[in-house]
Design a protein around this nucleic acid. Structure first.
Lengths: 195, 195
DNA sequence: CAGCTGACAGATATTGAAATCTGTCAGCTG
DNA sequence: CAGCTGACAGATTTCAATATCTGTCAGCTG
């Protein structure tokens, strides 16, 4: 028999995701995770102090995967700010919609998790609005956008598009007019930003 | 003893509101309503075919109260469209915030009710976006706004401001920066609308 | 001795029996 | 006879007993 792999936080997180996928957020227990790994649940508590901490770590991972895809667009200083903004918003919407459509149950699971993790979600939102702020500020610097306070404006853009990234609105993302609605809203916002 | 007042739909609705206020949406029963009125619950079913129909009627009433306050602004053809739009949005936000702040439990009760009444809520939203469409269209006619499709644009404005009228965001309405955030968003949208 | 186990106390969730509620309707009442 | 009552069947909710889970820790193991 091969030597047992060491029990790492990474392995626990992967097992937790699997358990969440199978059982859903309400029924997933630490005992289930330990069983899936073939260890005692006491061992899991060696890596994560509480069940809440474990759930938060899983949530953070999931949120960070979205942030990373977008940070590339936000940081691409070569492209003009308006197309970067449009691309960033479209990519965010597309990513959320794909996740919600591909595996609705898993998406619902993560939405529940996100709902209980005020802290992790707040950080994620701060990260995203930070990226938006950089795009808006770049636009102001380039003379393409007009914004007295780029941070406040970025926040306004983020909130204005909440319908297209807040999981609460997920059911509406697959309705026929969603793309047209999204395009109309982005056009309106970009128009409002132009110098 | 005075003759017993006749049992009208109106009296039942008032009693139902009172029961909902006292017991909350989960525990309010038709039997409670009948008891509050001093009649048998069978009599309530004479006016409302089901409990769901009764709840829907109460919800509709509550939603209509908001619509009416706004319809005056939307219909006031004498004022210039931009100030009407700003006023309309500010009034909607103020009304929602006041209701949520004055009696959070009652607001939560109605939010739950609204959540189960897809039909009534859809009508209410259609009513509100209809009012918005009229304001936008008036602006286009007056040459103040530019919008290829006033209805689509009105819908975009409504969605963009969802954070300031969707009950799901109510907890954020009392945070310090809420007014500034609202003002920034409205400025951005109005800027985008201008011809 | 670092890492894991498994028994334990208190907290939380599940279960099934009993109570209550919804919706109907035959008949009472004014 | 129009409007109300109250008993009823089936659905839903409540409640308390039972089972499971969370988080800890003394001690085992390699």
């Amino acid at each position: 028999m091969a030597a047992t792999e060491p029990l790492t936080a990474e392995r626990i997180l992967r097992a937790t995701e699997e358990v969440l996928r199978r059982h859903g957020p309400a029924k997933a227990t630490v005992v289930d995770v330990a069983r899936a790994l073939g260890v005692s649940h006491g061992s899991v508590y060696r890596h994560f102090r509480t069940k809440a901490a474990l759930r938060e770590a899983v949530t953070k991972r999931w949120l960070d995967r979205t942030s990373e895809a977008l940070s590339g667009i936000a940081a691409d200083a070569d492209r003009d700010p308006e197309s970067r903004l449009r691309d960033w918003l479209a990519t965010l919407f597309a990513a959320k919609r794909r996740k919600a459509g591909d595996d609705p149950e898993l998406f619902a699971t993560y939405s529940v998790l996100a709902g209980e993790q005020g802290e992790a979600v707040a950080e994620h939102i701060a990260d995203l609005t930070g990226q938006l702020t950089r795009i808006v500020a770049a636009g102001v610097d380039a003379g393409a956008f007009r914004a007295a306070d780029p941070e406040a404006t970025a926040w306004a853009v983020f909130r204005a598009t909440a319908c297209f990234h807040d999981p609460a609105y997920a059911p509406e993302w697959k309705t026929p007019g969603a793309d047209a609605d999204f395009a109309a809203l982005v056009d309106l916002l970009v128009q409002g930003l132009r110098a």
